[in-house]
Design a binder for these strands. Sequence first.
DNA 1: ATATCAATCAAGCGATAACTTGAATTATAG
DNA 2: CTATAATTCAAGTTATCGCTTGATTGATAT
Lengths: 221, 221
Amino acid sequence: MSISPKIALLEEYALVARALSAPARLSLLEQLAQGERGVEALAEKTGLNIANCSQHLQQLRRAALVTSRRDGKAVIYRLTDAKTLELMDLLRIVAERNLAQVERILRGLSGGEDAPEAVSRADLAARIAEGSVTVLDVRPADEFAAGHIPGALNTTLTELEQIMPELDKSAEIIAYCRGPYCVYAHQAVAALRKHGFSARRLEGGLPEWREDGRPVLSSHL
Amino acid sequence: MSISPKIALLEEYALVARALSAPARLSLLEQLAQGERGVEALAEKTGLNIANCSQHLQQLRRAALVTSRRDGKAVIYRLTDAKTLELMDLLRIVAERNLAQVERILRGLSGGEDAPEAVSRADLAARIAEGSVTVLDVRPADEFAAGHIPGALNTTLTELEQIMPELDKSAEIIAYCRGPYCVYAHQAVAALRKHGFSARRLEGGLPEWREDGRPVLSSHL
DNA sequence: ATATCAATCAAGCGATAACTTGAATTATAG
DNA sequence: CTATAATTCAAGTTATCGCTTGATTGATAT
């Protein structure tokens, strides 16, 4: 005898939520938000064992949050559509608004200082146009190469201190990274402010910037 | 040694998703979307054991999707804010758009027939104003009493066939129930159409209608 | 205070999930 | 056709989840 359609529906909705309920899978989704990737590349970026990574990706696929295609012997995964991003974002918003623990972690990232408000993407676009900001891309070099905001400077957190002397102290620095789940920009802003720079974080990251239809530059194809 | 803040953040986001990953909890949220309730009432409506129900509610509270207050010896739960509804809705949208299984279930609810498009709440409001529709509330009587669309007729699915003769065949019937997770309206529309009525489903349910700021009538306070 | 009712806590059971390891597929290259 | 590389499958272990049962807490009413 079949279970009630009501329960069957709820099971399906729950399946989608369950796919989002493991940190490892959220991490994979964050990577995929940057662009499509193969299993091996995703495993390396997220620090997962390859078989394990593949299994997580299959769960995401079952929940229809990602899709895959074959390219030779590789299988390339990507986000199904913008709704996946919306879900991730809403999840984060609810957690940030209501969970004390999240606030504590974010405060910790900012070195105890009060972090300034993030800059909206529209504001950044306007300020880039008038040339009054330095844009800092705080992601690994390969992700920067795959696509970044035109005119952005690329640095990792560890290199940041070394290149600080070269930065223009008179212009405000806007840092961004992979997106709302990524903490690099938070940490970069904290480090810069500690050294006397005027710095803020971009709201969202490259995926959101791209989603807005704003220009993205790739170093090599 | 503490884990990285990055992972800690993802754990928190995952906690919210996990709270949404059990059909029982989605069912509780659906009930709470109707209005605040005590544990016992929720247990009865969802068919859960009381202790079990309490535990599920606590998980929802840990994820900040619901809040609770004491009222005498009772503990009253309610949705934290509209974001919780948004999350539930987005979950449903992703599942409906991308999961074949969901489509199959929904088609089954409509008795194999092609179900007509749902009516938007704005359209219904306009048509109520001009008096050209019969509004049907397909929820249990107690929920109807607690709040319903003014002018709506209340019936359960089982009683529907008996009251059909009293219904105006010339006016279109718009059925609604608890909301997008609820299947009563789907089933009522299917039954009505099978009997030759012109019937459609309201998009969303009473919680969404109320959220829009539209009038809601309670039979007793 | 004691009794009562609503809700929560605590312990135990079966089922499921995450991760690891090693084998099996699938598509290309030689 | 065989070899190789990328991915998936399968099996096993440990941990966690959902549910049940019985005891406990917290707030009223007698």
